[in-house]
Design a protein around this nucleic acid. Structure first.
Lengths: 132, 132
DNA sequence: ATAGACCTTCCAGTAGATGGAAGGTCAACA
DNA sequence: TGTTGACCTTCCATCTACTGGAAGGTCTAT
């Protein structure tokens, strides 16, 4: 299977698939003409990567998950640990963004947004604002 | 004022301050010995940068905000536009993370997390799960 | 005089791709 | 058979926003 087809089937751009090979996440065969030749197992790996990346796992975490995925003897506890750590991280990110959103929303709603130069957003950024 | 003091006053690492100069965000004076010499106006710019970066604005957005900040004739509408766009972006990011969180939480809570190899998290990543 | 804290420049590396150039290959159509 | 166009290859550069480190100059205190 050529890389174009692998790209279609996995939902990953060809560039990304080559990149994943570069960093050792998979090792597709080659045909006589030098083209990469993807097996269905390769496609599974690629789809696995696409899903776990889109779930917010880093490439290195994906590497771990992938090796757990391949390992029929693994403990589900190992997988759960990684996923739980990621969950904590996501919660932290959400809280941070919600805080940001609150401040920014406050600023936007207090800026009259017309042709006058005075602006509470700039005041805040300059450290002159009320919201701290 | 030397860079160490500027760093303390702005809350930005010296490395970052030099980097901001490299990319043209400020142009501090130099003393005879070649050391950077920060004015209080420079410190204001740096604090402005620190605040707007921590509010989630990109360096390029900071550049725009900074020029609006310097421009006594600016329309507050211009500033509000940038802030509103950022707000939309933050909302989008939050929604995405909340979605992720839901799926991951579901998976974690359904994984028994023991020494057995079967694991719904891996199943999902492999495309065998119920949650899609 | 010298130690240690500062400062300088420059180069490389991080994550996770993405864009583009230069060139090889393949399938179809006239 | 020739040639067009889609596909593939490698390699190198670029992006964001820094960060780390080496090699070396300067300043201050003792």
């Amino acid at each position: 299977m050529n890389i174009g087809i692998a790209s279609e089937k996995s939902g990953l751009p060809a560039k990304t698939i080559r990149y994943y090979e570069d960093i050792g996440l998979l090792h597709p065969a080659r045909t006589d003409n030098g083209y990469r030749d993807y097996s269905t197992a390769d496609i599974h790996r690629l789809r696995f990567l696409q899903r776990s990346r889109s779930l917010g796992f880093s490439v290195d975490e994906c590497r771990q998950l992938l090796s757990l995925y391949q390992d029929r003897e693994r403990d589900s506890a190992d997988v759960k640990e990684i996923a739980k750590a990621k969950l904590v991280e996501i919660d932290r990110k959400i809280a941070e963004l919600v805080g940001l959103r609150g401040l920014l929303h406050h600023l936007v709603s207090h800026c009259h947004g017309d042709e006058r130069p005075d602006c509470p957003i700039i005041d805040e950024l300059a450290g002159q604002g009320v919201a701290q």
